[in-house]
Amino acid sequence: MRYGRAPEVLRDLSFSLAPGSFHFLTGASGAGKSSLLRLIYLAQRPSSGLITLFDRDVATTPRNELPWLRRRIGVVFQEFRLLEHLSAFDNVALPLRIAGQKPDEYRADVAELLAWVGLGARMEAMPQTLSGGEKQRLAIARAVVAKPDILIADEPTGNVDAEMALRILRLLVELNRLGTTVLIASHDQELVRRSGAPVLHLVDGQLTS
């Protein structure tokens, strides 16, 4: 994988994530974690190699079919990427609106999920008024509301204290128990250790574990 004519950021990678598995992705800054996640959540196509997602070759899947694959993937972005002009409720409802659900169909689910992540009292709050931890939980709620088959989280505990990080980890583990395949990129070695989950370790664009 390379961007334009720049040197390769990922090379000779070969791994598979079994349905319902839980993995951590670790590595130093610049090791290629975010690039690998971008490939998996279909923000980027590989410049070479084969990526199979839901039995489809990502490189050859027509562009107009990618949205349907993306709907099966929930993403917690490193910088949250919440829509600042939407309330917490509307941010979480976004994947369901995109999937074509009517407000009457998703209202109760979104309210329940917000309560589940501890934001039931802040449904009308705008993202800029939320703390780092609240934004993180809101981003997680948005990523899981459509019950994705895969959840990708890029440094989901990067902006919160240790207690909140543990709480978020418990939340992700609970999702995994419900059947979602989870892949978390993290610098937080303590979190990785406590989870006991298998680790994919990236060094200079290659897996070493």
Partner: peptide, 14 residues
């Protein structure tokens, strides 16, 4: 662009 990219990555068709 930011909003459009989030919509796309969340599964929005063109």
């Amino acid at each position: 662009r930011e909003v459009v990219e989030v919509l796309h990555l969340t599964g929005a068709v063109d």
